[in-house]
């Protein structure tokens, strides 16, 4: 049984600078996703819509768009769950490159501030550090982040101030801080409690509602704030000790 859907796609042509809405009608079979619909429009009607897609099993995080006003991954939203004029728009808070493709380089680069790596720079390792399943449980939720940038697109603070590091970077920083094998915790908290760090977040909480892998970046940021306050108090009380120990290491 096929059902008729009208798809409105927001187009943008970088050369002419024009924005307009394309209307397409498609006949969807049972379990057609928005991504399948876009593929069909692009291939049969040669509409030439530019969009990102790769794995079609909602694990790579490239097909993030706004469908009917909600930030979703196109590959796991089904047409039968949406009401009829399905409107597809590019992600908010990012410069639009063309049609549904947005420029997320800046947000990806902000991950650098989260120092997303453990300290071990050695190349060979013989011994295996023990990590109990309980310790692993701590980082299970925030380590699911697929970097699809939907949370950054749902954050009003990021929309108004592009220097803010964004919920994604904070969630990944929280994942590495809570990892039992990590010892960069101090430096990472320095970076997070900095000017563009977590203090700009007013806990709107929308980034957690939008996350397709329910990583809950809002919760991670609040916990980082608490850790940040304690860290700052500690580093404020003993500034002399800290600088001396660094030279020793």
């Amino acid at each position: 049984m096929t059902k008729k859907y009208t798809i409105r796609i927001r187009r943008y042509d970088p050369q002419t600078g024009k924005n307009w809405y394309d209307i397409h009608n498609i006949y969807a079979e049972r379990r057609m996703t928005v991504l399948d619909a876009l593929n069909q429009i692009n291939e049969h009607e040669r509409a030439g819509i530019s969009y990102r897609s790769s794995c079609r099993m909602s694990i790579c995080g490239s097909c993030g768009t706004i469908v009917n006003g909600k930030s979703v991954l196109m590959c796991n939203t089904f047409l039968k769950d949406l009401e009829d004029p399905v409107t597809i728009e590019p992600l908010r808070n990012f410069a639009i490159v063309k049609d549904l493709v947005v420029d997320t380089d800046a947000a990806m680069e902000k991950l650098r501030d989260a120092l997303p790596y453990t300290t071990f720079s050695i190349t060979k390792s013989r011994c295996e550090s023990v990590q109990t399943p309980k310790q692993l449980e701590k980082i299970k939720q925030t380590s699911q982040c697929i970097k699809c940038m939907l949370c950054v697109s749902a954050c009003p603070i990021y929309g108004l101030d592009y220097n803010f590091m964004g919920p994604a970077a904070a969630a990944i920083a929280y994942r590495y801080n809570k990892d039992s094998r990590d010892h960069v915790g101090e430096k990472r908290l320095d970076s997070l409690t900095g000017r563009n760090g977590v203090w700009k977040c007013n806990f709107v909480g929308e980034c957690s509602n939008v996350c397709p892998k329910n990583v809950d970046p809002a919760g991670a940021i609040q916990k980082m704030k608490v850790m940040g306050v304690l860290h700052c108090i500690k580093s404020a009380l003993k500034p002399k000790l800290k600088s001396k120990s660094k030279s020793k290491k």
Partner: peptide, 21 residues
């Protein structure tokens, strides 16, 4: 350790700490 580690903003942290308390 590379990457631009911006310094911790102690005043802001204490202000937020006071706010939450």
């Amino acid at each position: 350790m590379s990457g631009n580690i911006n310094k911790p903003d102690i005043i802001k942290s204490l202000k937020w700490g006071a706010f939450s308390v």
